[in-house]
Design a protein around this nucleic acid. Structure first.
Length: 425
RNA sequence: GGAGGGGUGUCUGAGUGGUUUAAAGAACCGGUCUUGAAAACCGGCGUGCCGCAAGGUACCGGGGGUUCGAAUCCCUCCCCCUCCGCCA
């Protein structure tokens, strides 16, 4: 959520930012008008409340003195009725204001490229090189079948399409990757590991912005009004919801969780294999930082995610997303994409974003600055990284002519010494 | 799931309808004193909203109600504790 004061005082700047995104300026205009109305009502209601408080005290004093209070009581009753009417009007105005504020996306950072969609994203850097093969590389589905890493038809039988079932060395590889990433972030990058609930309440979903907009894309348990998390960002960021942080910033948290996404619109393209699924595993990184440092923190967040891929020796590139392609809450975002030789394309495995105070405002998460004043923190998060596509890239980039897949050095201890994934006999 | 007891500021804790603008203590911050520290004393010490400010207003787990007036009474939900039931 944006700061209403920013809309009130710097409307043109907000409007320009929204138009760079392709968002409607009308939303901000509505908010601006409702804010004017709201403040007028507050002034009026507060004045009446001052009167009521004063006159109510008179009644107390009169009663103590044993005097009749009928006249004053009638007055106060009248004031009370006026207040009730104003409060109701205020409630409606605030509700309308809240509704429009929740629909306004974040203002993009000034420095990011302007453009309508992914075509305007900028490649910032790449690492490694495109592997060349003396044979025709297979895609991950063929490799997974030959190596016996997953059994997708049985996942369909047990649950439905998009619920992959990993098996044997495939499930072990997932487990190894989770361990490898968590160990790296906790031991080398200074993150504290959490193992949070995978199911959260509606307040948490609102805190990070999934509700109200994304309700249709999430799994909901109606009887308890609880939601399956679409990303660890939700429980981990809500860790500090409704708090004034007394500990020193920055705070770095990381967590492994499964992620559940209904993604109603995904039928058709990319539905084969484990590229786009309803349940997948991910290691997430979340930062709570001082506003002045958040853009530096974004750079180091990306570097933390890159270290995972560099350790595995995988070819990747970093994109700086343009104004039209960043997510609703983000002010700036880098995507990390892995090269997938089997499909001759780039796969997004991480999205690292600075939300500035956009998330912290709904989250009600503050810290104390040097003067002791409570200020909103800046929040960031990034995948570090998402697993199915990482597995795809490992299989496709590291496949050998004999049909095996050479495991990166760093994974071997986690795989109990295994060096290669071998085809089934 | 059932029965009972609770939820007040950073913490402890008073407050069961009317100067409560929430007592008191502790912690914390600043000051005095001191060579320095401790102690003592003085002052400060929640969050939001409106306002240039002075100030006003709201908040005692959340929501609703009764009343001229609610931390206080009623309803409801959430959470914590104790006991019982169930259980990986």
């Amino acid at each position: 959520m944006l700061d209403i004061k920013r809309i009130r005082e710097n409307f043109d700047e907000v409007a320009e930012g929204l138009s760079r995104r392709g968002a409607e300026i009308a939303l901000a205009e509505t908010a601006r008008d409702l804010d004017v109305k709201r403040r007028a009502i507050v002034v009026q209601a507060d004045e009446l409340k001052t009167q009521r408080n004063a006159r109510s005290k008179e009644i107390g004093a009169l009663k103590k003195a044993g005097q009749n209070t009928d006249a004053v009581q009638a007055d106060v009753r009248l004031i009370g009725e006026q207040i009730a009417a104003l409060d109701e009007e205020l409630r409606q105005t605030e509700e309308a204001l809240e509704t429009s504020m929740l629909r306004i996306p974040n203002v993009p950072c000034k420095t990011i490229p302007t453009g309508p969609d992914a075509t305007a994203n900028r490649v910032v850097r790449s690492w490694g090189s495109t592997p060349s093969f003396t044979f025709k590389p297979l895609d991950h589905i063929a490799l997974g079948e030959k190596l016996g890493l997953f059994d997708l038809p049985r996942g369909v039988k047990i649950t439905g399409s998009g619920f992959p079932l990993m098996k044997g060395a495939g499930s072990k590889l997932q487990r190894a990757l989770v361990q490898y990433m968590l160990d790296m972030h906790t031991e080398k990058h200074g993150y504290t590991e959490l193992l949070p609930p995978f199911v959260v309440n509606s307040a948490s979903m609102r805190g990070t912005g999934q509700l109200p907009k994304m309700a249709e894309d999430m799994y909901h348990c109606e009887i308890d009004d609880l939601w399956l998390i679409p990303t660890a960002e939700v429980p981990v960021t809500n860790y500090h919801r409704d708090e004034i942080l007394e500990s020193k910033l920055p705070i770095y948290l990381t967590a492994y969780t499964p992620c559940f996404r209904r993604e109603a619109g995904s039928a058709g393209k990319d539905t084969r294999g484990i590229l786009r699924v309803h349940q997948f595993d991910k290691v997430e990184m979340v930062k709570f930082v001082e506003p002045e440092t958040s853009y530096d923190e974004l750079e180091s967040l990306v570097v933390n995610a890159e270290a995972v891929l560099q350790g595995l020796g995988l070819h990747y590139r970093i994109l700086e997303l343009c104004s039209g392609d960043i997510s609703f809450s983000a002010a700036k975002c880098y995507d990390i994409e892995l090269w997938a030789p089997g499909q001759q394309g780039w796969l997004e495995v991480s999205s690292c974003s600075n939300f500035e105070d956009f998330q912290a405002r709904r989250l009600n998460c503050k810290y104390r600055d040097a003067t002791g004043k409570a200020r909103l923190v800046h929040t960031l998060n990034g995948s570090g990284v998402a697993l199915p596509r990482l597995v795809i890239a490992i299989l496709e980039q590291l496949q050998q002519e004999d049909g095996s897949v050479l495991l990166p050095e760093v994974l071997r201890s986690y795989m109990r010494g295994m060096e290669k994934l071998m085809p089934m006999a």
